[in-house]
């Protein structure tokens, strides 16, 4: 649904957010039996200013930051930020593409303090470096762990189950 008037009627705050930044592309999703919400795709360079615009437009509750590894697609990773505006009762999803050869993205800890642990976890699991993050260290895996487990080329690590002979 990309009818601008429909989007404007339903979600005015999100459209002001998207207008703040050039490269932002707006799309909507209506879950079954739920209300429409907005997904904004943005480029890496415009990402911090878009997030700042979201905070200013009233999406003051930080919900989630995660990454998706698409593997065969370019850019390989998607970093997805979920925000909620409790005043308007709306959700907003921001997606940024991060390429494989240069997995870096600006941090938003100065905008939403809550993204701290989420960015650390995303670095731990995917290897995406967040520039400007105050403490980008391992969060869930042990400190000396090598590799980024949630990448698609990191195997699940299952050991073959052998049934030992009874003694």
């Amino acid at each position: 649904m990309t009818d601008e008037s429909q989007i404007d009627a339903v979600i005015p705050a999100a459209s002001t957010v998207a207008e703040a930044v050039e490269s932002a592309e707006l799309s909507t999703f209506t879950p079954r039996g739920g209300q429409t919400y907005v997904i904004i795709d943005v480029s890496r360079d415009d990402y911090p200013s878009l997030v700042r615009a979201a905070l200013d437009a009233g999406y003051e509750t930080f919900i989630d930051l995660c990454a998706v590894d698409h593997l065969a697609r370019e850019p390989r990773f998607d970093v997805v930020v979920n925000l909620v505006s409790t005043q308007h009762g709306e959700r907003l999803r921001i997606k940024v593409g991060v390429p494989n050869d240069d997995p870096e993205l600006a941090t938003i800890t100065s905008i939403y303090a809550g993204s701290n642990f989420y960015e650390r976890e995303t670095w731990d699991m995917f290897g995406i470096v967040f520039e400007g993050h105050p403490d980008l260290t391992r969060l869930l895996m042990p400190d000396e762990w090598e590799g980024h487990p949630l990448r698609k080329d990191f195997r699940i690590g299952a050991i073959p189950v052998e049934f030992k002979a009874t003694r």
Partner: peptide, 20 residues
Amino acid sequence: AEARAYGVTGPNARAAGLDY
């Protein structure tokens, strides 16, 4: 305000006054 910034929701945030 802190609850919003950190993403604290549920009874912890509602006890602070955030009606979500």
